[in-house]
């Protein structure tokens, strides 16, 4: 436990309740997410993992008639405050989705999009960022000769790594992954997992997964959620070997979920 204290908290959830209309999806979530670590959110389907994740870049703003209570601090600033610029926030907090969602554009256009909408005109700067991000996402060698090809011609695994690379271009600090391997084959999954471990030296990473082996392989911390509650949170090794809560243990041993 002692070495945890040295770690910086990058994202702090402070008593968060979330409602879809009148349906409560999150019940008083408190959680610390540490910088340059991978935090996994696990739990049975519908327990609120995605809902929680999508609060961190305020993607839930898009859901009409949803409501949030409590605070979510990013570097000690509440991201629900009125004066927070959600565009700025989303540049700081990137997101990779369950299904690869490249734009129906070329690989290069996909990569440059984040800068284009930011108003960057400098072609050389854009090139540099695009190439650098593709290298960081371990995709460069595979696609460097066909940057002008449609992104939709890539394999599913490559598309997902492109989506990861695409979000690196705008230099986020935190990256949210919502079941990024759910639609991928084992080899592509392995590549993405390696990439996530590689990327944590630069970014704070939160990953939703319903694959417990995956959580065990990639994460430093794990949060187990159940029916909108955060049941247990701790270092992955501890949570997997000596779970404190009976429900965590039952979930980990496959008794439900």
């Amino acid at each position: 436990m002692d070495n945890n204290l040295k770690e910086t908290v990058r994202v702090k959830a402070d008593n968060i309740n979330f409602f879809y209309g009148s349906k409560k999806a999150l019940n008083g979530i408190n959680m610390d997410i540490y910088a340059n670590k991978v935090t996994a959110l696990i739990g049975p389907s519908g327990c609120g993992k995605s809902t929680f994740l999508r609060l961190i870049n305020r993607m839930n703003d898009l859901v009409t008639s949803s409501r949030v209570e409590g605070q979510l601090l990013l570097d000690n600033k509440n991201i629900f405050d009125k004066d927070v610029d959600v565009v700025e926030l989303r540049r700081k907090v990137g997101m990779v989705f369950q299904k690869p969602n490249p734009f129906p554009k070329s690989i290069y256009e996909n990569m440059a999009y984040g800068l284009e909408i930011k108003g960057v005109k400098d072609k050389k700067f854009t090139d540099e960022k695009v190439f650098e991000s593709l290298k960081k996402a371990a995709l460069w060698d595979e696609i460097k000769d066909r940057l002008n090809d449609s992104a939709l011609r890539l394999s599913g695994g490559q598309q997902q790594r492109l989506c990861i690379a695409r979000c690196l271009v705008v230099e986020p600090e935190v990256i949210l992954f919502d079941e990024p391997c759910a639609s991928l084959d084992p080899i592509s999954t392995r590549k993405i997992e390696e990439l996530i471990i590689e990327l944590k030296q630069f970014y704070t990473i939160i990953i939703v997964t319903h694959n417990m082996q995956q959580a065990a392989r990639v994460s430093d911390y794990t949060a187990f959620m159940y029916l909108g509650d955060l049941i247990e949170f701790g270092p992955t090794e501890k949570l997997f070997t000596v779970p404190k809560d009976k429900r965590t243990e039952e979930y980990l041993t496959g008794k439900f979920g």
Binding site: N57, M59, L62, V87, E88, R90, R91, G94, M95, F97, K99, N101, P102, F103, P104, K105, Y113, G114, E116, I117, K118, C163, R166, C167, V170
Partner: peptide
């Protein structure tokens, strides 16, 4: 146009107008 494309655009920091003009309408 798949909602996932809009989400991808917003997640990269695009405004609604940018998302409509650059992603939704071309698609």
């Amino acid at each position: 146009v798949p909602q996932s494309l809009r989400e991808a655009s917003y997640a990269l920091g695009a405004t609604q107008i940018q998302t409509i003009g650059r992603i939704v309408l071309p698609a």
